[in-house]
Simulated scan of single mutants.
Amino acid sequence: MAIGRRAGAYICGVDAAMDVIGGKWKVLILWELSLRPYRFGELRRALAGITEKVLAAHLRELEADGIVHRQEYDEVPPRVEYSLTPRGVALNEALEPLAAWGKVNVLGQAPEPAA
């Protein structure tokens, strides 16, 4: 299923992927959600420096792109949890080599041994 918010065709797959994960916070949101489902306030506290407005906007965009699932519970007070969809899990798996590159080439950490 092709998803695209931008008008016109993408140049390549990297262009399309960057449209989905572009921005300062989206990759960090994906990283946190890979650990466990979060409620909005928990996620905001886990991402020091993000504003409520930006987090809400990014979560809406990621949900629209099929990356994040928003689960509403019929409780009082209302409860909403965010988690990754299978597409979001696959995206995180695709980002793992980029994270490994950053650890070695930017942070100067030793590469992890191959499994």
Rank of each mutant, 00 (worst) to 15 (best):
A2D: 06
A2Q: 06
R5W: 10
R5I: 02
R6K: 08
R6W: 09
A7T: 03
G8W: 02
C12W: 11
C12N: 14
V14P: 01
D15C: 09
D15Q: 04
D15V: 04
A16W: 11
A16S: 07
A17D: 09
A17K: 12
I21N: 04
G22V: 01
G23I: 03
G23Y: 02
G23E: 00
V27S: 05
L28I: 04
I29G: 01
W31S: 09
L35R: 12
Y38D: 01
F40L: 04
G41A: 14
E42A: 07
E42L: 05
E42I: 00
L43N: 01
L47P: 04
I50R: 10
T51V: 03
T51E: 11
E52M: 09
E52R: 15
E52D: 15
K53C: 03
V54P: 01
V54A: 12
V54R: 08
L55W: 10
L55P: 04
A57W: 13
A57H: 13
L59D: 00
L59G: 02
L59W: 01
E61A: 09
E63P: 00
E63N: 12
D65E: 15
G66M: 10
G66V: 03
I67A: 01
V68H: 03
H69M: 14
H69T: 12
R70T: 15
Q71Y: 13
E72A: 14
E72V: 13
E75V: 11
E75P: 03
E75K: 13
V76I: 07
P77V: 07
P77N: 05
R79G: 01
E81K: 06
E81T: 15
Y82M: 00
R87H: 03
G88C: 11
V89K: 08
V89E: 05
L91W: 03
N92S: 11
A94R: 07
L95D: 00
L95Q: 01
E96F: 12
E96Q: 08
E96T: 13
E96V: 13
P97G: 04
L98E: 04
A99R: 13
A100Y: 07
A100W: 08
W101C: 03
K103T: 04
K103I: 06
N105V: 09
V106E: 10
Q109C: 09
Q109K: 12
A110V: 06
A110G: 02
P113M: 05
A115Y: 14
A115T: 03
